[in-house]
Nucleic acid binder design. Structure first.
Ligand SMILES: [Mn+2]
Ligand SMILES: [Mn+2]
Ligand SMILES: [Zn+2]
Ligand SMILES: [Zn+2]
Lengths: 139, 139
DNA sequence: TACTATAATAGAATTATTCCAAGATAATAA
DNA sequence: TTATTATCTTGGAATAATTCTATTATAGTA
């Protein structure tokens, strides 16, 4: 917690109790929570917290490059406190999202008809699969 | 149009005028339209068409593997009448989505810690970039 | 301790998408 | 053809995710 406070204080990022709670929840979190996941968690300690605060905070973090919005799930956005370039895999059974830490950049050259039209700035791979637990169920 | 009718008739896919109009609009369409794009277009000829019909139809097509739902745009779903495996690139300026026809499968091996947990079934790459027109504007 | 820019909040508004019940019609077979 | 019926279309309501707004509160700073 002290680490978090130290990291953000004095960077123009105002640290309120709600924000600190959100930052603590996100710190090292690899579950790729939704806005509702964050809201539900913070509400335990701050029952009056609002969705507006959750969205405001993740937007502020996103704008500072501290957090990524993940689009792999067609139903809703998921948030990732790890802003380093990496990819994701989602279980088509339960929706669980896992990390894929591997840099494929070297392999992702684009056809000339694409580079003629687009100046490429980034990429993200969505993998799909079935997790261990879901395989156990179905079999 | 006759080709479309021939393709779907007798496959348990009931062909109504609205559906034929949607199929015609999608046929060969590489613009990755949203539900609203489809609705707006069909409404020109069938002013009473509803969003329910648009969504019902794209769902029916999706379930038959004739159409893909694209998640590259965090704001809304886009639909792609080309169900063959391919990837996409979106302009971060105007949102335009282009196709990337290249099979990267060979290069997308996954780390063992991932394959230990997930049985991989598919992948899709989102590329980001800036299109020609947007580059012209900004410079 | 006072000041002020910024944040938190409730709730309304917006937007995308799904659901539902009633009427309409495409496909099929007599 | 015509009758049958499963499926589709439709308007509108319902849901769900996200954003906006006006007001009140407060963190950081002087
Ligand atoms: Mn991640
Ligand atoms: Mn495409
Ligand atoms: Zn699973
Ligand atoms: Zn553009």
């Amino acid at each position: 917690m002290e680490r978090i406070v130290r990291k953000y204080r004095g960077k123009g990022f105002k640290l309120t109790p709600q924000r600190i709670a959100i930052l603590k929840f996100l710190e090292g979190n690899t579950n790729h929570p939704t806005a509702d996941d964050i809201y539900t968690e913070i509400k335990k300690k701050y029952p009056t917290v609002s969705f507006a605060t959750v969205y405001n905070t993740v937007q502020a973090l996103r704008d500072r490059g501290e957090l990524l919005e993940i689009t792999i799930d067609p139903e809703r956005k998921h948030f990732d406190p790890n802003p380093s370039a990496h990819h994701h895999i989602m279980c088509t059974g339960c929706g669980k999202i896992g990390d894929v830490f591997f840099d494929y950049s070297e392999s992702l050259g684009l056809p000339e008809e694409v580079t003629r039209e687009f100046a490429v700035t980034g990429n993200h791979i969505d993998f799909y699969g079935v997790c261990t637990r879901c395989r156990a169920k179905t079999s």
